[in-house]
Design a protein around this nucleic acid. Sequence first.
DNA 1: CAGTGGTCTAGACCACATC
DNA 2: ATGTGGTCTAGACCACTGA
Lengths: 243, 243
Amino acid sequence: MTVLKPTAQPLYQQVKQHLVHRVLTGEWKPGQLLPSEFKLADEYGLSQGTVRKAIEDMASEGLVTRQAGKGTFVTTHDGDYHPFRFHRFYSDQGERIAKDEAVLVSSSPAKADTRIAKGLDIRKGTAGCKTVRIRQLHAEPALVETFFLIDSICPGARDFLEQENPKSVYLFMERHYNLLITKVLEQLRARSATEQEAELLNLEPGTPVLEVERIAYSLGGEAVEWRTIVGATDHIHYRNELG
Amino acid sequence: MTVLKPTAQPLYQQVKQHLVHRVLTGEWKPGQLLPSEFKLADEYGLSQGTVRKAIEDMASEGLVTRQAGKGTFVTTHDGDYHPFRFHRFYSDQGERIAKDEAVLVSSSPAKADTRIAKGLDIRKGTAGCKTVRIRQLHAEPALVETFFLIDSICPGARDFLEQENPKSVYLFMERHYNLLITKVLEQLRARSATEQEAELLNLEPGTPVLEVERIAYSLGGEAVEWRTIVGATDHIHYRNELG
DNA sequence: CAGTGGTCTAGACCACATC
DNA sequence: ATGTGGTCTAGACCACTGA
């Protein structure tokens, strides 16, 4: 690894950035095996330990997964491991919501409104696709999930969604667009249910509901999905562990 | 470090556990300097690198803080660093709530009700101290904070609280009881404001409010505080970053 | 069996803090 | 000048995987 300036970043961080870039550009796709530490160390002309530190950093951020005796793999949402790592809704008995399939309500072309445009940092009116689905608990509607995907990033999403109705949108984005979601930002509010929500969730109009507004960021740091998740919290709650 | 069984945990994990125990028992108190890596390596009869890995683990968990050229310190909530690391409420302009002082409403002896007892994993009726405070935004009441401390863990808390009215309860617990809060579990719900809440927050009765129910755990993993934070979310929200 | 990641050692040099 | 944590190297042995 060529060090242009002696005051530059540590070598292992340079290696890490380069490896992240190689994952990003699709050199190794989700689920695929990376070269071993020794091979990468040879390639970069560094010691194994330095490359190891770069990879350990990536692993701690969830970008890759390491398995002793096998190798280092690009993380996929496909495995048993992190299918719904961003879902924070639980029933009061401790079950995770969203294991079951989502019920598709509607999926249609849409233009970004002010709120969506602000969240995704795009221009108002940008073309996209808006989808509404319902998550159930014990066969009862529990949550309304509304998400917006940008046409220029996820072309043809509407057709794919109607064909597949995937359990996990992020797995769907990974498969079709090679977008790996690594970070989401959520803003939570309490408000009264709208008429549409009351109808979809079998609630009295005006019932207090919890609204989660979420922006999802891909590996490159680009905002790629806007979403709200809305539901009454009589039998479910949003769980958060800090520290 | 004596290895009794060759199949035991890695040495650095054994060292880490032992160091955590020494912090827990107060050998080094919050803010104090730990011995250097070399001294600890000597003490345990290991190489510096092994001790380093143990300490890096502790640092990544926030238990200690490292500073090049100075040393490794037991983390304290006192410094500039993490005064309100568990506060997730922001105004819609992005300001953090709870910078200002909290307004003390009441502080009185209380017995754990069913909900508190369940949260803290103690018997119903356990003696403690219940305190209600208000957090303001721009001199307007924004959040009602209600917390319960157990007498056997925090004796005399009521007197201390009335004397000091501390900005941060966790800093207060650290100073008086050597309890370092490292983890909290929060459950969020939307519901209607109670009469008392409506009065304290200048709301119409029945307004939807966000309720955060929090259990705080000390370094040893013991549940030491139960709390709710309640407020309307017209101008503020709960922010959560995942991944 | 060879290859992988996981652990551990013993050295080296650096930038930074403190005195 | 000394001591600290931060980086980097070059070796070693281990447990596990898979052919």
